[in-house]
Each structure stands twice: as C-alpha cells, then as structure tokens.
C-alpha cells in the first residue's frame, strides 16, 4: 500500500527516516512551513527556510524515491513578532505560486492573540486570491475553542471549508470540524496528542470521509513512520483496506490536489525505487549501504 504523509517536517529528519519511509511505502509527503523550535529573528532566515522547502529538501526526498511538496506560510507562534511577521508577509507571494506548493500553511492559532488572528486573516485572504488550500495548525492549549475560532475567522474571510485541512484534531474537536464541512486531520504522536489506538477508535466512530492521518514528525519526539504504523494497526483491528487507503492516501491527495500542484502521476514512476540504486557520488547517499531490508515490516501488500 502507498501512503501520503500530508504533514511532516523533513528538514528535521535524518536520511534513516527517509529510507524507512520509502521502504514502508510512503510515496509522497507534504512539508508545512512551521517554526523550528528556535524563534527566528530575521526575515532572511525565513527566505532561506522557504528556499530549502522548494529546493534542497525536495532534492533530498527525491533521492529516496519520495515526492516532496510543501505548504508555505507564517506560523502562528512567530506571527507574534509583528515586525518580523510584516516582512515575512512580503515574502510569501514569491513562493505561493511555485510548483509543488500545495497550500498556505501551517497557519492558525497558538496563544490566540490579536496578532495571530491578524495574520491568519491576511493569509486566508492570500489563499483566496491564489486559489490554494489552507493547512491549519490548531493550538495545543485551549484547543477546542481555538479550533472553533479558527473556523469562524476563515468563514468570515469567505473561505470554502472544503479547501481547508484542519490539523491536530482530537476527540473533542473532530465532530464540529466535520459538521462544518472541513477536512479533519489527525496527528499521530508516540507519547502526546493522539496514539495510533485512539485513531482507530475515531475511525470507527466517524468513518473515513474527510479524515486524514499524518505524522507531523518534526524536531521533537515524533515518528516519521506514524502513518504506515497506524495503517498497520488499523488493518490488525479489522478496518477495511479501502478505508485505510482513504485516510492515509486518497483523502490528503484529494484535499491538497485542489491546488492543482499534486497528482498521483507525479510519483507513478518513482514510488518504491530502491534508494541504493540512486547512489550519485558526492550526494546524500554516501557509500553503498544496504537499505533494501529496512523496515519492510510496515508495508501492507
């Protein structure tokens, strides 16, 4: 089975992760722009970060036979540094219409401040102008109200909920998100947020329509294999393969496919490529390491 992990921060991950993801069947990934743990102090570092997302990270992924896409945006945490935020807003138009940019994201609320709302609104307008989907980060603190407030702002701007993927949902938020017509994504973290087992329960209750599973793997404790692992658990628990494929592949493809920048044929010729076959001298894949056997246990045939 092929997977599309629609939320993973590969700039923080190693080549081991890429190898394992490729071996486990991850065909494509979407890397949202986010903060990097250490707050940035200069707009230029945002530019270089965006350049990495449309440049070197795309290349790095391709060496493992994985197609890399991204969403571009000003994250809510750093929206609170208004001087910086203004400069980043100036940069965004240069990136959002590039090839492989499948949305504006991740944007939304963190502390739910006035500045955060301002930049959520401005970026929602940008998405409207560029006709791009939006990837929403919902806050960790006061999540339920933050999620409702996010949807209120988006609807106020005139955004179609069908073009918005709301991420980091849990049992408390999913119902309203689905009822209002949004895509509901779930982040599977090993210790926090949502484990694989809770995800299985949510699927049983709500079905698979407009539900998406992602890893959101980043620089913290997280699991770049969360999507294939959750899929394996779902299979074990009797969820049909069709449903599993829907939430780990078809739904994110349909949601972000609205950008016109991602389609299945992009990876029909690369998925499942043996990374060892791509060895290219002085590049990422140094030395002739054996990768064929890695992590095939998570592959579903």
């Amino acid at each position: 089975m092929k997977f599309l992990d629609s939320h993973v921060h590969m700039v923080s991950r190693t080549t081991d992760d890429y190898q394992r993801m490729a071996s486990a069947g991850v065909a494509a990934i979407i890397e949202p722009s986010f903060w990097q743990g250490q707050p940035r102090t200069e707009p230029g570092t945002f530019k270089d970060y965006f350049n990495t997302l449309v440049g070197f990270e795309r290349f790095r992924a391709s060496q493992f036979g994985i197609k890399h896409y991204c969403t571009i945006g000003l994250n809510p945490k750093e929206a609170n540094n208004e001087k910086l935020a203004e400069a980043v807003m100036e940069l965004l138009p240069l990136y959002i219409c590039k090839e492989g940019v499948v949305g504006i994201g991740e944007i939304g609320f963190d502390d739910q401040t006035r500045a955060e709302e301002k930049y959520l609104r401005l970026q929602a307008q940008l998405a409207l102008e560029a006709d791009l989907p939006i990837q929403i980060h919902t806050p960790h603190r006061d999540k339920r109200l933050g999620t409702i407030r996010t949807m209120d702002v988006l609807e106020d701007v005139g955004i179609d909920p069908a073009k918005v993927i709301i991420d980091h949902n849990n049992e408390e938020t999913v119902k309203e998100v689905l009822d209002r017509g949004y895509w509901a994504a779930f982040t599977i973290y090993p210790h926090t947020k949502l484990g694989n087992e809770r995800m299985v329960e949510i699927l049983r209750e709500y079905g698979a329509e407009r539900i998406i599973v992602d890893s959101a793997a980043d620089w913290g404790i997280s699991d770049a294999l969360a999507v294939p692992k959750t899929a394996a658990l779902m299979k074990e628990q009797g969820i049909t393969l069709e449903r599993i494929e829907q939430v780990t592949y078809q739904n994110p493809l349909a949601a972000y496919g609205q950008s016109g920048q991602i389609s299945e044929e992009d990876w029909s010729d690369t998925a499942g490529v043996d990374p060892a076959a791509l060895f290219e001298g002085n590049t990422i894949l140094r030395g002739g390491m054996d990768v064929a056997t890695a992590m095939s246990q998570y592959r579903i045939e």
Binding site: K47, F50, N51, V54, G55, R58, F59, L91, L94, Y95, K98, E99, G100
Partner: peptide, 9 residues
C-alpha cells in the same frame, strides 16, 4: 535566483 525552486534555478 534568491528564491528559485529547483527547476527555476
């Protein structure tokens, strides 16, 4: 060049 993606470069 400062903001180019791979194919643009």
């Amino acid at each position: 060049l400062n903001t180019a993606d791979l194919r643009e470069q």
